[in-house]
Design a protein around this nucleic acid. Structure first.
Lengths: 162, 162
DNA sequence: AAGATATAGTTGCCTTGACAAATATAGTTT
DNA sequence: AAACTATATTTGTCAAGGCAACTATATCTT
């Protein structure tokens, strides 16, 4: 076993027991779901009724500036149909607006409203920064960028198939 | 950007158009979903009709030996209700069996059938090994264990709240 | 320019998973 | 041992997201 951590506690000696070292896949799942939970909790704590997905959409809309629904969907890795429904909700909450695109009459331009901008800048972005820096607080700068780098390389390896 | 209209609002210049460097959160999402996709594709390619969740349940059942539904649910980070339904399916497919626990009459013992064991050992575990080693092929041993280590530290930081 | 093909957004359908309620059984306290 | 309390599993309900079908428009081909 390549990464046998000496500080691991002894364990029941059942079948091939190394059940305590989570696999890479499991770690990714757990880390991600903790981040999601934490950000949703922060948002709720600030009185904001936003799901993690909605938070992401606000983030990307702010980041990209007015964008089409499809661009946004790709940016947050969400299905187009699901995007439509999330946009419905965010529009109902008053955080963004759909405007017909004058260039392409099939498309929309999704833009933050003033309220949406305010919520993003004053609250939501702060929540996520708080969570993300808490998450990485035990890594120094070098380690943080290594982590980032490793994950990018893993991603590329997975996408450049063979 | 095809068609930049003069009446279009200014492209947000502020947040440094570094929109191309995915955040840590986004990386985690993307890496994980690539892994899931890849493993499901491998399984399907081997003629196995197994969702990623079902794959995980087989894996953990193999790893833990006969376990209760609750133990399994915790091991794969799945809700108890969802577990019941996945067990229904896996039992229908003939890969595992529910036996009443003789010690605790509320509980079950979930065990792989012979078919389940065979599928795991001959096919499913191989698929996942193939995907996971492809994923990490551009990291050397040291980097792999650093990645693992960093993720564990991030996870701990998130769980040992502030 | 007509036809073929591709893309944007919406909607319907289906599956999954979270959450809560219900039931059965253990374990603890009085 | 009766009353509480905690745990294991199941079921109902709901929201979310994937996929396919549909409409409208754009783009490419002939």
């Amino acid at each position: 076993m390549p990464g046998m951590n000496p500080t691991d506690p002894p364990r029941s000696t059942a079948p091939t027991d190394d059940a305590h070292a989570p696999s890479l896949g499991m770690l990714l799942t757990m880390v991600r779901s903790e981040i999601v939970r934490a950000i949703e909790a922060e948002l709720a704590g600030q009185g904001l009724d936003l799901s993690f997905t909605q938070f992401l959409i606000l983030k990307k809309t702010h980041l990209l500036g007015p964008a089409s629904a499809t661009e946004l969907a790709r940016a947050v890795e969400l299905d187009g149909g699901a995007m439509t429904r999330q946009l419905d909700q965010l529009e109902r909450k008053g955080y963004l607006r759909r405007t017909p695109d004058t260039q392409d009459r099939r498309a929309l331009r999704i833009a933050l409203t003033d309220a949406g901008n305010k919520v993003w800048q004053d609250t939501a972005s702060v929540c996520s920064q708080r969570v993300m820096s808490a998450a990485q607080r035990s890594l120094d700068k070098t380690e943080q960028s290594q982590l980032h780098n490793y994950l990018q390389r893993v991603l590329r390896a997975l996408r450049d198939k063979p």
